[in-house]
């Protein structure tokens, strides 16, 4: 964050996120059951960033919906970092309220006591300081995504869930947004799970990458990254990508 002299507040929940989905089926349009998830089990250590990668339609978004509590029809168990803590979501679409300004969109998710709080730092770090009185329809997709990020960070969640937050942006905007996410996340590391198709993105942001198979999804493997984010230069990234590609064929 811009103000480094400020003590970093404790972030995230005290425990790891533990996901253990043993089966998840959908009722298809023809009435037949479709097995979406065979077995997905992984954990995310407190204040660390995990990424799920897998082929399209393998059940990544379903996993996130289960973590968010939007889908409760599955067998298995789920342990959140903090049972009473709040969970923030950044969806594929920004999902802002079109009839509220940027500022109101962020403030609305705060509890009544926090609603008048100072959000200047958050808007500043995400480059939204001048956009606060705009309506979402006046924003580009990149800006709207930033508002969605601001909204997620504003509640100081114990868990953050991101569903392809950089998809369908041009590369330059996506790069810029990834850097912003790294900044704002590093200022207050929060347990996070992200879904993406982009391995480069995963390598840049994550502490742990979880590879999934085709549907019905299983965990194909887990790749740990110890390197501090600041030291992940482009040469290191290329080397890492190559070694991952060697280990998990067809992943790139």
């Amino acid at each position: 964050m811009s103000n480094l002299s400020k003590p970093i507040p404790p972030a995230g929940g005290p425990n790891a996120l533990e996901v253990d989905i043993r089966a998840k089926t959908f009722r298809g349009a023809d009435g037949e059951d479709v097995r979406a998830i065979e077995a997905i089990a992984f954990s995310v250590a407190p204040a660390s960033f995990a990424t799920l990668i897998g082929p399209s339609g393998c059940g990544k978004t379903t996993t996130l919906r289960i973590i968010l509590g939007l889908d409760r029809e599955f067998s298995g168990s789920l342990k959140l970092p903090d049972s009473g803590g709040r969970v923030a979501a950044v969806f594929q679409e920004p999902r802002l309220l079109p009839w509220r300004t940027v500022d109101d969109n962020v403030r609305l998710v705060l509890s009544d006591e926090e609603a008048d709080g100072d959000l200047d730092d958050l808007f500043e770090i995400l480059g939204l300081a001048e956009m606060r009185s705009r309506y979402p329809a006046e924003l580009s997709l990149g800006l709207a995504r930033r508002v969605a990020l601001a909204r997620a960070f504003a509640i100081r969640p114990s868990l953050m869930v991101l569903d392809e937050p950089f998809v369908s942006l041009d590369e330059q905007t996506a790069t810029r947004l990834r850097a912003l996410l790294t900044n704002v996340w590093s200022a207050r590391p929060t347990t996070a799970v992200m879904v993406t198709h982009n391995l480069r993105e995963a390598v840049e942001l994550s502490d742990r990458i979880i590879f999934l198979t085709e549907r019905p999804a299983r965990v194909r493997g887990v790749y740990e990254i110890d390197k501090p984010r600041a030291e992940r230069d482009s040469r290191w990234r290329e080397a890492t990508l190559t070694s991952i590609a060697k280990r998990y064929s067809g992943i790139l």
Partner: peptide, 24 residues
């Protein structure tokens, strides 16, 4: 439905959902 899910994840109260998500 997307906005309704957003309101659920961010724990909007029933009143808040009605006033800020449904009625508009």
């Amino acid at each position: 439905r997307d906005l309704e899910e957003m309101a659920r994840v961010y724990r909007f109260s029933a009143m808040k959902t009605l006033r800020h998500v449904v009625l508009p």
